[in-house]
């Protein structure tokens, strides 16, 4: 009879996945801000620049009447920035870490999930700054805090699901990294980020129901900007879509990842 201690090598590790995960996340963050003077504050630069540009176009050129438009934009742009950065970083995570994958066994999903987590850390920092500003404007943010948590959880789940699938597809077809740029550009304008979901004409309202990011953005804005209860029907659809994306990403990854070391 076999020694019961004998197991496949992939079950054998001295460290918990948590330690490897933390090491990978901290590496991502270290590498990102290495040799940069402003470091973390760069993550605020893009949303601020975008907000300034949209402010100019919509308020001063098109003269759209919208109260607190700068803050309205930032409550959408900051979460978008997280989604975009995390998806791009995670898509490349397996290819970028090819040397590690060829040399050591460790649970492979830790790479794309770690890339999402590193960007989540940065996003939380930016969110903290934004919330201080929103509090200063007199918004009772504590009343919407639970909706903020819901939005964060759903967005992270959606992001992880998409990232698992894209990262492993990108190993087989490097085109994915190119396509993702176009995909994100289109998604940016189809998602209620620089406009409110209620401003969309009825004919296009269905978009918000099929775009998994729309309910998440709606929830961020409800929790942070207007401090109200989000559209619960839409949120339920968003939760189902995020769960679906997570399940799909997991299945794709589980099916395709064993061959990764041979393809890199």
């Amino acid at each position: 009879m076999d020694n019961p201690r004998l197991q496949p090598p992939t079950r054998r590790s001295l460290v918990s996945s948590t330690d490897i995960f933390l090491a990978l996340v901290s590496k991502e963050l270290h590498v990102k801000y290495k040799r940069s003077v402003l470091g973390f504050f760069w993550s605020l630069a893009t949303p601020l620049a975008l907000a300034a540009v949209y402010l100019f176009v919509f308020v001063h050129v098109y003269r759209v009447p919208q109260e607190d438009f700068a803050l309205f934009l930032l409550t959408g742009l900051l979460p978008w920035q997280f989604f975009q950065m995390a998806t791009v970083a995670a898509t490349n995570s397996l290819v970028d870490n090819a040397p590690l994958i060829r040399k050591v066994y460790f649970p492979r999903p830790l790479l794309p999930i770690g890339a999402v987590a590193a960007n989540l850390v940065t996003f939380m920092g930016g969110l903290g700054v934004l919330m201080l500003i929103l509090l200063a404007t007199g918004r009772p943010l504590w009343l919407g805090l639970h909706w903020l948590v819901v939005a964060l959880v759903l967005q992270t789940a959606l992001c992880v699901g998409i990232s698992l699938a894209l990262s492993v597809w990108n190993v087989y077809f490097r085109d994915i990294a190119q396509v993702i740029g176009i995909f994100l550009l289109v998604l940016f304008f189809l998602t209620p980020i620089v406009y409110d979901v209620t401003m969309v004409p009825a004919a296009f309202r269905a978009l918000a129901w099929v775009n998994p990011l729309a309910p998440i953005m709606e929830t961020y804005r409800a929790a942070l900007f207007e401090v109200r209860t989000p559209d619960l029907g839409l949120l339920a659809a968003g939760a189902a879509e995020a769960a679906g994306a997570l399940a799909l990403g997991y299945l794709v990854f589980r099916r395709l990842s064993p061959r990764i070391p041979k393809e890199l």
Partner: peptide, 21 residues
């Protein structure tokens, strides 16, 4: 392939070090 304990593997040079770190 079955193994009875934790493995340390040193395969190829470098162990995937990041040059900037």
């Amino acid at each position: 392939v079955l193994v009875g304990g934790p493995i340390s593997s040193l395969i190829e040079l470098g162990a995937g070090f990041h040059p900037e770190l």
